[in-house]
Amino acid sequence: MTTLASAIHLLAALFLLAAFAMLSQRRLANLITLYAWQGAILASCIALAAYATGSAHLYASALLNALLKILLVPALLRSLARRLDVQWDRESLVQIPTVMLIGLGLVIFAFNAALPIAVPGAAINHATVGIALAALLLSLLMMILRATALSQVIGFLALENSLIFAATSVTYGMPMVIEFGIALDVIVGIFILGVFFFHIREQFDSLNIDRIEGHHE
């Protein structure tokens, strides 16, 4: 096994670790930091893939991801959290150990689902696909189980991270245009959501999902 492949595998494992850590984290500030770390892992993974294939557009993608996910989005989220004055997620809907157990089940499922997939390519194999799939399911789980809207948004962003990771590991990235489009979507999405949060809070005096859900009319 080459050093490159083992490095990509290592990063994949770290990616999953970050996804799991986000699942078990209560504090919003830590959640944002973990998101930034996941972005950093993703960016270095893309950079490695770029090095492996020597394609310039992957380098650009790595740079873009790094800028967006390590610096810009976390900064935006932090300022949102500060201005909305939410430090902690409320007690999660389900106890953390139970969440982790469910997550473990999802990981087993994802790994098994990925086992038959064999992608032709030197450094990428079913393992990274399995990890991407597992991370994707975990982010979805996080969105389902979180009690406040902001952490759900972070779950959504982590979901997007996993998608990019899957794309990188399966097909060495997407066409540049699509990546730029997604990046733009993410930023615009955060701005819009930020504006929404302020409105929501004025309306309901809370960002807790169940409070919001109570008002259907």
Partner: peptide, 24 residues
């Protein structure tokens, strides 16, 4: 503390699963 250690426990189990996935 049980939560902290439970997390450690599950992370370690996850390591076993990842080992199986990568085969090494």
């Amino acid at each position: 503390v049980p939560e902290f250690l439970g997390t450690a426990f599950l992370l370690a189990v996850l390591g076993l699963l990842v080992r199986y996935l990568f085969g090494h």
